[in-house]
Design a binder for these strands. Structure first.
Lengths: 195, 195
DNA sequence: CCTACCGATCGGTAGG
DNA sequence: CCTACCGATCGGTAGG
């Protein structure tokens, strides 16, 4: 069945590209590099895709969608401000631990994306950041959270969680769950009062 | 004065490359792109440099050296554990606010570097990270600091400060000094006891 | 899926 | 600093 094998090939192409783009960068990866991973010639890839750019666009678009979905689920699972922070960070960390290649590409290849996909990615990131900021602001307004700057606390929390993608490895000294719990704790420390 | 103009040209080449590599990536930047910025032909650059790779190597090597020097100065300026954390983070944040292009290149182009420079950069980063970890460990041992994980607190603190390079712009709503103070405060919160 | 090939561009060299 | 040029490689197409 040509169509089913072709669909499987498409998945294989994306998977190979995901690893190579994360490793060597978009411009550092050639179509021949991708083809070699599948044991075919570069020209054969064009039976499944339109362009190299299209592969990059698909990778970055799928990525933000799942992160925002999981974030919304985490935040709506409790009304307690402190607990929202904890769960949002646990979700944030788990997602980044699971998608190191996508994170690397998203951080390094924004300017390799053509419009309108590039702008769409930037906007999706902004929405995610705004959702965090609003969550923290609500907690501050209710007197449950405290911070010298809602905006900077947002950036600090997001960035420290993104960093997990850079060093976490399955099978290391801590499990994903342990890392998520510790970061949840660190996040709460960062935005709660001392008393 | 061929030699003095030539030295100035070299600085201009590095400066142009710094902006372009940060913007478009090492492989996304051509020698023609760099030459265009200076109003010369690509071939003329080779009167000043040996290769494109050499420019990248020089950028990444100068970078870590100044960061580690400033860190050591900050830490040795006080014996108080909490104050060490605060000053180390202020220094870390100021440095990252001032070197956004170098940070971007350092994060995205490690695998574009050839050996042995690539390994040297990784080792320099490791030394910096270890210095932070030991500083935090000392504070914990003395009973001044508290954290669920010295290692993860180290990663979290480093990464949140690195993130400043991504969004800080001179002339924005907060000055570099204000951002450094707030991050110093956030860092202390992250690793001190509640009481 | 392949071979054969396109024009464009790459980093770098020769020679002046 | 330039022009002229090198071989290699790029992403992508034609045609089977």
């Amino acid at each position: 069945m040509t169509s089913s094998t072709s669909a499987a090939r498409l998945v294989e192409i994306r998977e190979a590209a995901l690893t190579l783009f994360a490793d060597k960068g978009f411009f550092g990866t050639s179509m021949t590099d991708i083809a070699d991973k599948l044991g075919v010639k570069a020209a054969s890839l064009y039976n499944h895709i339109d362009s190299k750019q299209e592969i990059l666009a698909e990778i970055t678009q799928d990525t933000m969608r799942t992160l925002i979905e999981e974030h919304e689920k985490a935040v709506s699972s409790t009304e307690d401000s402190v607990e929202q922070i904890r769960r949002a960070m646990q979700t944030h960390v788990r997602w980044h631990a699971r998608h190191p290649r996508e994170v690397k590409i998203g951080n390094s290849e924004i300017n390799s994306l053509e419009e309108p996909v590039r702008t769409e990615l930037i906007e999706a990131r902004h929405r995610y950041s705004e959702a965090w900021k609003e969550m923290i602001q609500r907690g501050v307004d209710q007197g449950d959270l405290e911070t010298p700057s809602v905006r900077l606390a947002t950036y600090a929390l997001l960035e420290m969680g993104i960093g997990v993608a850079l060093w976490f490895r399955e099978g290391g000294s801590l499990t994903e769950t342990e890392v998520a719990y510790i970061y949840g704790d660190l996040a709460v420390r960062l935005v709660t009062k001392r008393h």
